[in-house]
């Protein structure tokens, strides 16, 4: 109950006394305001202005890579995010078991989240190398057949990129859902047990209703972040083969590498109608109890 006077029009009430606190407040807010103006507001405004030419949009829509990219992005979002969350939901149920060894396992499980992206993605990239990679060499040893050319087939390559994404982000979301599960009072489960509920019924009638909101919010937030996941695709496939595995995040950067910044901005503007509603929803959620 932090209380502060809400100003109202008083009969000649001087507010001078508070002014030094307000002044300091403004001064201390300045660093971030500057950061925001200089590195967010100006760049974004400038970027939008760069994307003002209708011609850029025509060029973009005519670029065959663009259409493929949009499809890839949608597939990536729907499949990778949902698969990741189903796994996280399942694994969070596993990790809430109270065992010493499961606690240790959870410490190991965090590693993908704790280490930087490049080393592990490169590692996976080489594991998938058709000639020398450990995956195909295992397949050969076990079956005698040659494994697929993982990163040279657009569908397989995109699937692998999704797998990399899931590998990296799964621990974080598992932790979040775990926190949600741990917040459910134990009595609810005990009551359900007494009532003779099966494990599935407990999940359906106790767990899910309690963490549903968390699950949905997290899914949306993860979608926003996944849209910005450049590493999983770029570092694994580089957008290849033949620019067939690009997503919007890598396509924008591809245009920059081609020195077409206007085109890069246009790509992003095209994505905004999908991003902004998600952002709006998230902001509303987070400022509920302000």
């Amino acid at each position: 109950m932090a209380a502060i006077a809400i100003p109202h029009p008083p009969p000649a009430a001087p507010r001078r006394r508070l002014s030094s606190w307000q002044t300091w407040g403004v001064i201390m807010l300045m660093p971030y305001i500057l950061v925001f103006l200089v590195f967010v507001l100006y760049p974004v405004t400038y970027g939008l202005w760069l994307a003002r030419h209708p011609q850029s949009y025509r060029t973009l829509f005519e670029d065959p890579v663009f259409f493929r990219t949009v499809v890839n992005t949608i597939v990536f979002l729907l499949v990778a995010v949902n698969l990741k969350f189903l796994l996280a939901l399942f694994l969070s149920g596993f990790f809430v078991h109270e065992r010493r060894w499961i606690r240790w396992l959870s410490v190991i499980f965090i590693i993908p989240w704790a280490v930087p992206a490049i080393p592990t993605i490169f590692s996976i990239r080489f594991m998938l190398n058709p000639e020398w990679g450990i995956v195909n060499s295992l397949i050969f040893r076990l079956t005698g057949a040659d494994g697929p050319n993982w990163l040279n087939d657009p569908t397989l390559a995109l699937s692998m990129a999704m797998l990399v994404h899931i590998w990296k982000a799964l621990p974080f979301w598992t932790l979040i859902l775990m926190a949600g599960r741990l917040a459910i009072p134990r009595e609810q489960y005990e009551a359900a047990s007494v009532d003779g509920a099966t494990a599935w019924q407990k999940f359906k009638y106790v767990t899910w209703p309690s963490i549903r909101t968390l699950y949905l919010t997290s899914t949306l937030l993860s979608m926003i972040w996944t849209l910005g996941d450049f590493n999983s695709v770029y570092l694994l496939t580089g957008g290849g083969p033949a620019d067939l595995t690009h997503v919007l995040a890598t396509l924008g950067i591809r245009y920059i590498r081609l020195d077409q910044v206007d085109q890069a901005m246009t790509t992003i503007v095209v994505a905004l109608p999908f991003v902004l509603p998600l952002v709006y929803f998230m902001m509303k959620r987070l400022s509920v109890d302000e």
Partner: peptide, 26 residues
Amino acid sequence: GRVVMNAALFTYFIPAAFLAVPMYKA
């Protein structure tokens, strides 16, 4: 302060790879 907080939250929700393009230009 609230406006600034919301501006910050907004930035937080812009996908990082999207902000990279205008940031590079700026």
